[in-house]
Lab assay of single mutants.
Amino acid sequence: APRKVEMRRDPVLGFGFVAGSEKPVVVRSVTPGGPSEGKLIPGDQIVMINDEPVSAAPRERVIDLVRSCKESILLTVIQP
């Protein structure tokens, strides 16, 4: 079942996760003590960023979407 995860941007750590460059977009790592800790799990597949589906989106679009979130971000993720 999809999970909705909302995180506030940390001034130092950002959102505190690293996503892979393949499709679908998969969470590779979560920064300890960062905003994503306890919310995202490595292996989570990101299916939506805010209200935009990203399963088939180019990597550049995913990066732009994350960067455009100055304060908070809403991710919809699934464990494949």
Rank of each mutant, 00 (worst) to 15 (best):
V66C: 09
G33F: 08
I78G: 09
S29W: 05
S68H: 10
L65V: 08
V27R: 00
L65M: 14
P32I: 09
E60I: 05
P42F: 04
G14T: 02
K23F: 10
Q45N: 07
I46M: 04
L75T: 04
D64N: 10
V18N: 08
A19D: 06
V30Q: 01
C69W: 03
A19Q: 09
G20C: 08
E60P: 09
P11S: 07
V54F: 02
S55T: 06
S68M: 09
V66Q: 03
G16L: 00
V26S: 08
E60A: 13
P32A: 12
G14H: 04
I78R: 14
P42M: 07
E37P: 00
D44C: 04
R9W: 09
K39E: 07
G16S: 01
V26T: 14
P32L: 09
D44V: 01
V47K: 08
V77D: 02
G33I: 04
E71Y: 05
K23S: 13
A57W: 15
V12P: 03
G33E: 08
P53N: 14
E71N: 08
G38S: 07
V26G: 03
C69T: 11
E6M: 10
R61P: 03
S68Y: 09
K70I: 04
Q79C: 15
V5G: 00
L74C: 15
G38E: 06
I49H: 02
F15G: 01
G20A: 11
P24I: 02
M48Y: 09
P53W: 08
G34Y: 01
V66K: 02
V27P: 02
V26C: 10
P32S: 12
P32C: 10
P53M: 13
G43W: 04
S72C: 08
I41N: 15
F15K: 01
V5R: 02
V47F: 08
L40Q: 01
A19G: 09
K70P: 11
A19W: 11
Q45W: 06
V26H: 06
I41M: 15
P2A: 09
P11M: 07
F15S: 02
G43P: 00
V66D: 02
A57V: 14
A57H: 09
R59G: 14
L74Q: 15
S36I: 00
S29A: 09
P32M: 11
P53S: 14
V47L: 15
L40D: 00
R61T: 12
K70S: 11
P35G: 02
P11T: 08
R28G: 13
L74T: 13
V5P: 01
K39A: 09
T76R: 10
P53D: 15
S72D: 13
S21C: 11
R3T: 04
P2T: 14
G38A: 08
P11G: 07
K70W: 04
S21G: 15
L74H: 14
G33V: 04
L75W: 02
S68F: 08
M48K: 11
R8A: 14
T31H: 13
V26K: 11
P32Q: 13
T31M: 10
E52Y: 11
V54K: 00
K23L: 10
V54E: 02
Q45S: 08
M48F: 13
P80N: 10
L65Y: 09
S21T: 07
V47R: 06
F15Y: 11
G34E: 00
P11I: 06
P80M: 06
L65F: 08
V47P: 01
K70M: 06
I49P: 00
R61V: 11
P24F: 02
K70H: 08
R3P: 00
T31N: 10
V47Q: 11
R28H: 09
C69L: 05
I73L: 13
S72F: 06
I73H: 01
V77P: 03
I78W: 10
A1T: 04
E60C: 10
V30N: 03
P80A: 09
I49L: 08
L75F: 08
V12E: 10
G38D: 10
R59C: 12
I63G: 11
S21M: 12
S29L: 07
R28M: 10
V12H: 15
Q45A: 09
Q79L: 06
A1E: 04
R61G: 07
D51Q: 12
G14W: 00
V5N: 02
L40W: 00
L75P: 06
A1D: 11
P24A: 03
V27G: 00
S55F: 07
L40F: 01
V47H: 10
P24H: 03
D44S: 05
F17T: 01
E22D: 09
G34T: 10
R28C: 07
V26P: 02
A19N: 04
R59L: 14
L75Q: 03
L40G: 00
V66N: 02
P53R: 12
S55A: 12
P24K: 02
G16A: 03
R61S: 12
P42K: 08
P24S: 03
S21N: 14
R59H: 10
M48D: 08
Q79T: 15
V62Q: 02
G43D: 08
V27N: 01
R67A: 13
S21R: 09
V30Y: 03
G43H: 06
P80Q: 14
R8I: 14
P24C: 03
R28A: 12
Q45K: 10
K4R: 15
R3M: 06
T76H: 11
T31A: 11
P42I: 09
V5D: 00
P32K: 12
R28P: 02
I41Q: 14
P2W: 08
L65S: 06
S36M: 03
R9P: 09
P42T: 10
F15I: 02
P35Y: 02
M7V: 12
F17V: 02
V5A: 05
R59Q: 15
D44P: 00
L40T: 01
A57F: 15
V77G: 02
V77M: 03
G34C: 03
P35F: 00
S68G: 13
G38P: 03
I78T: 15
A1G: 06
F17K: 01
P2F: 13
R8L: 13
S21A: 14
V18H: 11
G16N: 02
F15H: 01
R67W: 06
D51C: 07
C69N: 10
C69I: 06
D64T: 08
R61H: 13
R67V: 09
F17D: 00
S29D: 12
R67P: 01
M48T: 13
G43N: 07
G14Y: 02
P32N: 10
I63L: 15
K70D: 10
D64I: 01
P24M: 03
S72M: 08
V47S: 08
V47Y: 13
A1Q: 02
V26A: 08
